[in-house]
Amino acid sequence: MKLKYQDDLSRFPDCPPIDSFGRTCTVYCLVFQAEAEMEMNFLPVAINPNSNNALAKTRCSGYGLSFWDKMQDLLDRFISQNYRKAKKEGKAIQKKYHVPPAIGTHIAELNIRESDGRMSQPNDKGHIDFHPFEGIDLHQRITQYIHIPKS
């Protein structure tokens, strides 16, 4: 089955990485819940028109989606001490910690199926790169929307 953004992925060696497999599991990511903004969901950073990180377009992972294998890992990432600090700091720090709601207003829980795409192993922070197959509607995999707790 052809991966979404296959033409872009083929520009990189070992992309997606050889240790990426189809898996059936529950993952978490940030999404917009409002219908008007839903078209911005599940867009890799190299594709997302709201992101213009030029170097992302030079990486295989730039064309993957960021998922977390535990909701706490995602919360740790965004609602961490660093994030709270970032809100008080300058623009560069805010970018660094990707302060919501720029990339989503809610946490989505998704039940991903083995046939949906190729998934990396979670890194030590629980982050996963996911490369979906073409034609997969990931909105259909959302099982619940969760409010981002106030920090």
Binding site: V45, L55, A56, R59, K96
Partner: peptide, 11 residues
């Protein structure tokens, strides 16, 4: 990448 948060920030 030395820092990667959905996208490369320090490489």
């Amino acid at each position: 990448d030395l820092e990667y948060v959905d996208e490369p920030l320090t490489s």
